[in-house]
Amino acid sequence: MNEDLSVMETITWQSFQKGDRKAFEKILNLYYPTLLNYGQRLVRDNDFAQDCLQDFFIELWNCRDKLDIPQSIKAYLISSYRRALLKEKTRNFWHQRVTDLDDHYEVEVQFNIETYLIKNEIEHETLVKLKYHLSTLSKRQREALYLRFNQELEYEEISQIMAINHHSAINLVYEALKLLRKNWVMSLLFSITTIIT
């Protein structure tokens, strides 16, 4: 089933490269929401993420005939957009201090359990403790979790996007999960049994 999907995607991509507007629209409908969602987690300014995304797609259209056929269109778009976004963000920053590109983004991720606790007015102390443990996750861990769980990408693709090696990508996810399990989930297990059933 997955194979068919990727063949379909490749056909769409090739028509897009030949200048087919319908194919371009199809790609936009498929990936614009996903990318916007991701971009708005990387930068705090939603409008900024959106402007960058529009410029990104316009650029994509303008140089469509020079592009390769990526193995996974989704991963390709995410990683190119991430680069464009962070570059634009760094440009806004650059005259203040030149540091590693990676310092200029944050990853906004809220876990289901937080919302659940807030909604059900679980006692204050538990929430504070949980918030603390969540904050011990690094932004790279959060991003890796997000790419794996919400974007459902393979580790190979995650490593490409985050510009790290395959092994580090796996480690980011595993370390984050271990941290979560050790620190809070088990102690809060019973407060969430209601959503499980």
């Binding site: 936009l28 614009y32 708005q40 529009q54 797609f57 979790l145 769980f149 959503i195």
Partner: peptide, 25 residues
């Protein structure tokens, strides 16, 4: 339970905003 708890909230972006964005491109 860990899957459920560590689920990351989807941001909801209004459909209208998405449609406008795509149309603009």
């Amino acid at each position: 339970s860990l899957v459920i708890a560590s689920q990351i909230e989807e941001k909801t972006i209004p459909t209208q905003q998405i449609q406008q964005g795509i149309q603009a491109i």
